[in-house]
């Protein structure tokens, strides 16, 4: 039982410095309906009319002359600052796209590919929609 008091003291000092943080950016992307987009038929203008232009920043997805992309980014960070006077900081984090929609266009602005992926943990990716022009 002699070890119990120092153990409790150290545990208390360690837990006092715990911090867990989660942020979700662009959650609206999960609600975007892409089932109506048909490669070879749907045009860039159709997509702009129904969904809108994709965000221009890389964090939001991105836009180029030949593609639109929408992403929903999940970030998890755990931090532990243990100690008093001397405080080493431990931190571990991960960021992944829980929802990712990519639409590519040809030179005439007609859809060539629709690719929609989903990930629950950033390690495994699942293709939810994949349609490309034959």
């Amino acid at each position: 039982m002699r070890w119990l008091s120092p153990f409790l003291l150290i545990s208390l000092a360690a837990f006092c410095g715990c911090k867990f943080h989660r942020s979700v950016v662009n959650e609206y992307v999960r609600d975007i309906d892409t089932s109506w987009i048909t490669p070879g038929v749907t045009t860039r203008s159709d997509i702009i009319d129904r969904i809108g232009v994709s965000p221009s920043t890389k964090e939001g997805g991105g836009i180029s002359g030949s593609s639109f992309r929408w992403v929903c980014a999940d970030t998890f960070t755990g931090t532990l600052e243990a100690g008093y006077i001397v405080t080493p900081t431990f931190e571990r984090g991960t960021m992944y796209y829980s929802e990712d929609i990519l639409v590519t266009f040809d030179r005439e602005g007609v859809v060539e590919l629709v690719s929609r992926t989903r990930s629950k943990d950033g390690k495994r990716v699942e293709i939810v929609e994949w349609r490309e022009r034959k």
């Binding site: 100690g83 001397v86 080493p88 900081t89 431990f90 931190e91 571990r92 984090g93 991960t94 960021m95 992944y96 950033g122 390690k123 990716v125």
Partner: peptide, 19 residues
């Protein structure tokens, strides 16, 4: 020794992994 060990250990854990 404890301070140096803690610094080295924190370096091991501070990592953001990619896919």
């Amino acid at each position: 020794f404890l301070c140096l060990g803690a610094l080295a250990f924190s370096g091991c854990l501070s990592k953001h992994t990619g896919l």
